[in-house]
Design a binder for these strands. Structure first.
Lengths: 243, 243
DNA sequence: TATCCGATCTTTACGATGTAAAGATGGGGA
DNA sequence: TCCCCATCTTTACATCGTAAAGATCGGATA
């Protein structure tokens, strides 16, 4: 009854004719060659290509534009191809978030290694955290948009876990304690929660534009990074609480 | 060509027959009467009814279930009725978020008024913040899901602004300073950013289940509220930064 | 080397959603 | 009394996620 999905997915129009005219043998030859932009019938590395396409779509069109069909279009394959590799939309988003966490962890590790002074070392990690989010806002927002993610996926679970472990480790070093794997004191937990909450909260507020108000009221030319630094290093309030 | 949208929206099936059999006059009488569950043709207060329906749907079915059509179904009207009152989905979500911010502000104000000791006063606001989010997770997540919101809407802008003003004011009282409306020192901005980032970050991490790991490692029976308290009051780390 | 299995990708189909546009309804002012 | 127009419904359509069946090879097996 419904008009079939024709027309909306031109996708591999060029390939259709090529496929009919080219005998089987040329496919492997083409893949071995440099013409990676052409799409042989069996893509060969569609999974990775789809993830890269998804990242492009996400950073170009935002979260709203990140659909299974849009990713398939971007990668030049049929709209149902992603389903085969990721199961469903949640699967694709979860794997993409895992990619994000790995980039994220790598960026923070690199930044920590580059630090020389103790103060630098203390600020390197949070600065890299915020910098990654600013450079890849789409990725960051996906990584923390839990309702569309499946944390039981091994790759995502592992990547996110590594991120947490790095944080806990950094806090432990800061407190000159060994954070053991299984048990925490209330003070240790509070220190970790404070560090994570502060940086994560700052980042989401920043990405949501919620800090514009504050930034615009600060002395001319104060950047978000400067505000972050002040937030992390400034003396604490007069009253008993950390507020 | 496409099969018309019949069947999927039974909605007011009962009303259709009623409308044909009942002459015009009885409508006002019915609305004035107690039968609010029955749906007169011109609803009379559809806008508010839709917002209440939306809140029910949101807390019952989560963000994924919150669609224009689901809200219309819940309110017992045709699927296109919400469009007339809110323009589009963004409009509905924005107005719902505004409702949320008003509830949120009221809850925090009430909690502050109830405080007696200085320590209580310092903790009342963040505790109420987290408590609201835990009691209304759907509402809270909508209020901070910026990509689907339109902050240029007066009601949402005003409600969110009031929330920010309350926070800035609380921080000012804590520092025993007057926070002037137009300009801030770096330290003042940092104090506001720290307070907001910490509580907002903690809340989102908590709702996303990201603190489970920490909570499960803490002494038996430690609640999220207790962790929050410790995070806000515990002495700060050894090293120079607030980390 | 010829054959066939199964992984990979495409086609087709369907229900649901957001939104636009045109039609019905009736409250309230002219 | 009559008619305007805000309110709500109907109809229509493009797009999306997903399921299921068909096409297309790479490579193991014989």
């Amino acid at each position: 009854m419904t008009k079939p999905d024709t027309k909306s997915e031109p996708a591999r129009g060029a390939r259709a004719s090529r496929r009919t005219t080219s005998p089987a043998g040329s496919r492997t030859a083409r893949r071995a060659g440099s013409a990676k932009t052409e799409t042989p019938y069996h893509h060969g590395a569609l999974r990775d290509a789809l993830l890269q396409a998804a990242e492009r779509v996400l950073e170009r069109d935002g979260l709203a534009g990140l659909t299974l069909r849009a990713v398939a279009r971007e990668a030049g394959v049929s709209h149902a191809a992603p389903t085969h590799h990721f199961g469903d939309l949640t699967g694709l988003l979860s794997e993409l978030a895992a990619v994000g966490f790995r980039q994220f962890n790598a960026a923070m590790a690199a930044s920590c290694d580059a630090a020389t002074t103790p103060l630098e070392a203390a600020l390197a990690r949070p600065k890299a955290y915020v910098a990654y989010a600013q450079a890849h806002p789409g990725m960051y927002s996906i990584m923390f948009r839990t309702e569309r993610l499946d944390y039981s996926r091994p790759s995502l679970h592992a990547a996110a876990e590594a991120s947490f472990a790095g944080l806990a480790n950094a806090v432990g070093m800061m407190r000159q304690e060994q954070i053991s794997g299984d048990a925490l004191t209330l003070n240790q937990g509070a220190a970790i929660a404070r560090a994570w909450s502060m940086v994560h909260g700052f980042t989401t507020l920043l990405l949501d534009g919620r800090l514009e108000d504050i930034l615009s009221r600060l002395p001319e030319g104060t950047t978000a990074e400067r505000l972050l630094e002040a937030m992390l290093t400034a003396p604490v309030a007069v009253k008993p609480s950390g507020l």
